[in-house]
């Protein structure tokens, strides 16, 4: 493993926190520094937290002062309910630009950049293929603000990779995360007592367990994987199927409170 001094941007996101937890257990990792606007939500032992806005000069100063060799960017907001579209754009596009600007330059000590992206990059259109490979691009322009942000952020990352051929740049396109701790619009939807679906349609969905998201990020830090990778659980599932599966998964995995209430009701 070549990464010894790691900077995690977006430490207060669930993924950033989980990654920091995993990395600080490893004695081979010298330093883990996390930056974000808010304090982290998970318990951390030796990760140093610095509270900064996504300002490139501040991040750059941290990168240089701590001689960071690996930057993991976990800030990307891919869920419209998390924040307002304007703030999401600020965070996703401008924030990514700033983080990348902090990593670039001839005297930069950064050797690896891992960027957490989203499968929203591909969008969802009627005439899409059933499966997207990493080489495919969305056939039509983005429909929502979030999708536009993801596409823009990724193009910034691609540009960074072209300008810095000596840096390993990994882009990970994640499917929707599911699990007991993660809160997204999907987990809220599946938490509803009765899950509404659209009559006559049964779209296929793809998910990734929260532990696997953290695992994929850790794997990308530990091994040099240049390029773009899709990260999703094998296979796709129609909505009716996963909704029923999650009805049980709710009981099994989404916390004690729900387990008690749903077991007694079933």
């Amino acid at each position: 493993m070549t990464s010894k001094r790691i900077l995690i941007t977006g430490l207060s996101t669930y993924w950033g926190g989980r990654l920091a937890q995993a990395l600080e257990q490893d004695p081979a990792v010298e330093t883990v520094i996390g930056v974000d606007k808010r304090p982290p939500k998970v318990a951390l032992e030796r990760t140093e937290f610095v509270r900064v806005e996504d300002h490139h000069s501040l991040i750059r100063r941290i990168v240089q002062a701590a001689e960071i060799d690996t930057v993991v960017d976990t800030r990307l907001v891919a869920d419209a309910i998390v924040t307002s579209p304007r703030l999401a754009h600020e965070n996703n596009v401008i924030g990514t630009m700033n983080v990348l600007a902090a990593c670039s330059g001839p005297d930069s000590c950064v050797r690896k950049v891992v960027f957490k992206s989203s499968a929203r990059y591909y969008g969802c259109e009627q005439d899409d293929p059933a499966f997207f490979t990493e080489a495919m691009r969305r056939p039509k322009p983005a429909r929502t603000g979030i999708e536009r942000d993801v596409v823009e952020a990724e193009s910034a990352v691609r540009e960074f990779a072209e300008r810095n051929p000596g840096t390993v740049v990994t882009t990970l396109r994640f499917a929707n995360g599911l699990g007991p701790a993660v809160r997204t619009s999907y987990t809220r939807y599946l938490d509803l007592p009765l899950i509404p679906t659209i009559l006559g349609f049964d779209p296929r969905h793809q998910f990734l367990h929260e532990d696997d998201i953290a695992g994929v990020l850790e794997h990308a830090v530990r091994t040099d994987l240049a390029g773009v990778y899709n990260a999703a659980a094998g296979g796709a599932s129609p909505a009716a199927r996963f909704a029923r599966g999650a009805g049980c998964a709710t009981r099994r995995t989404l916390g004690e409170r729900r387990r008690n209430s749903s077991t007694s009701s079933s």
């Binding site: 005439d127 899409d128 293929p129 059933a130 499966f131 490979t133 495919m136």
Partner: peptide, 9 residues
């Protein structure tokens, strides 16, 4: 759905 990528797969 008839998409070249689907047919190839």
């Amino acid at each position: 759905a008839a998409h070249p990528a689907n047919v190839h797969r």
